[in-house]
Design a protein around this nucleic acid. Sequence first.
DNA 1: CATAGCCGCCTTTTT
DNA 2: GGCGGCTATG
Length: 713
Amino acid sequence: MSVAVPLEKLTASQKKAVLHKEGPLLVLAGPGSGKTRVITCRIAALIESGVRPYHICAITFTNKAAEEMRSRGEASGCRGVWISTFHSLCVRLLRQYAEQAGIKPSFTIYDSGDQLRCMKEAVAACQVDSGSFSPSRMLEFVSRLKNNLEDADSFKAATFDHFGKTAAKVYASYQQILARNNALDFDDLLVKTALLLRNNAQVRTELSNRFQYLLIDEYQDTNHAQYQIARLLAQTHGNICVTGDPDQSIYRWRGADIGNILAFEKDWPKSVVVKLEENFRSCGKILACADKLIGSNTRRKVKQLIATRPEGSDVEFLVADDENAEARLLTDRIQKQIAAGVDPGQIAAFYRVNSMSRPIEEAFIRARIPYQVVRGVEFYARKEIQDFLSYLKLIANPVDDLAFMRAIATHSRGIGKTSVDRLTQFAKDSGMSLLAAADYADHLTSVSSSTRTRIREFAKMIQKFQQDSSGEVAPQMDCVFAETGYADALKNEANTDAIENINELINAAAEYDREAENPSLLDYLQSIALYSDTDAYDAGTSRTSLMTMHAAKGLEFDHVYIAGLEEGLLPHERSVHSPDDLEEERRLFFVGITRARDSLTVTYARHRVLRGQFIRSTPSQFLYEVGFGGEKVSFEEDSYGIEEQEPMINPSSSTPKAGMFKVGEVVIHNTFGTGRVKEFLDLGPDSIVVVQFQSGKTKSLMVKYANLTRAGK
DNA sequence: CATAGCCGCCTTTTT
DNA sequence: GGCGGCTATG
């Protein structure tokens, strides 16, 4: 079957990347360079040249991106190509080769909450000082070791200080707990797969024969384990194509190693390098802003950003008094745009931390702007969802003690904390899982006989569910919800929200049943564990999107707003002490900026309620770097005094010069029309003027960008 | 055994 | 400001 590859629509360098067939290929692609298109075209071209889809494996950064690529690919006849994230690929391989990997295929994937619970247990079991060895700190430490494929034993052998020895002990204990529960954490998915490929030549050969062509997107954000998986898969044939942009690496904090992409040519000596430097997305001025910003990063390969679109309008910088005023500023603008015929779905607002969505949402609701908050995991994090899922997890993986504990405590069933504690002790002494121990509860003499019966009944109920746990998921969920008594318990509480949420979950599972090739409870649970925020983004709806800049990776919008350009927020306070972290924050802002096609507006609030505290903020250093706000001198000149003050009004502008405005003067702005100057903040070339326009709206504008003209001139 | 209320803890980004 | 864990009480 022939696949049409629209080569005539591609640039010379894109064509080169698409058509390069054998051997390693590095595509260094700037933002908006049509990288995704290159990948889909390349897959099509491979198939056209006779490669079977079955032999192609494309790895994307998010499930959403995989889904999109699948649907685009299907249009051009790429059915049969394996397209997924690294994590999904690992789940699939670990299930297929569970025995060789030394695990059971029914494993549960532990999320960060589960991980913390296990780590708490590990720290407690090791009887170490929980002050300097706090579970969260240990988790972070262990995760870093895992990312580097270092196991507890080898780390123990290589370390000599007290901290290292203790951490090694905790690490080993943590792994033991996971193994006991037949559970893998996010890191384990990668680690186990990498080790499987490394240690088992048979599996490695089989898989490199299966995946003869490997394509990896967003390669700048791969960690060491992912790097090893890619290398081991492609080692024999060398048909590895990676694409990425070192300037868009924003996951260093979770182990991503920018060195992977920088060293690609060294790793694969015969590699061909294609640079995609043209930007087809953003207008010239937006791109210039991005270029200026990223130019402040020192640890980078300098790359050109070539605009192909017209200059467009200026990047706007708006100042608000607090986060609510900032939100109003956004809604005012967006409302106007929508009124002028802009599709709300082509507008997005980004921020650094999820908690910043709230004031914006409130303002959007008041202004009746249709919106979506791109935060998928929020739903799955709800108490009732987690409670309900714990039953399903226990059914799919009977040795999951965490799921048992959660499930048995979802509602009062006459089994209280003391009884569960006794059962835990009993299970521990006899080396059984909690469910097995519960089934054996007749021998649990430490609790009353009526409690014993209730515990045994609980076990019997779970076992009954296990017997018919194959096939479609939604019917099983209905059954579990009703028969466990959880539905009744929620009804008695009149918790209609919770019931609705669970019904929504079951509806989503029905959707899964329809779409999955081979639906099963296990597969369903493993796939929702890998669900991410970005997956919640619905491109098809006419709603303005709110999301973190991390979630915005890979997306684009006509009109972009970025809020909270303040020191401590962007860059985040946890990043300002390390130059590397600071550069990552800059890249994050860079990613945000380069999502915009036609217009970009950045905002800054002078005050903000953060963690319940009202604080004064200073403008982000990044604003100065892109040319807003002038020299840092203006920090001192600012009126952050004892009392809250209005910006200084310059009283001495009797002879108005260009760039100077008097309070009361009438001015004209290209988009806002005529207005009267309310305030003038003299910051030299970066002066800010506050104008009340005839529409009634008051705007803070940078004089040099606002392009104001005096009335009557 | 269950519940309510209080205290103290953390609080960036996410697969 | 929000959640989890602890305690006191019914």
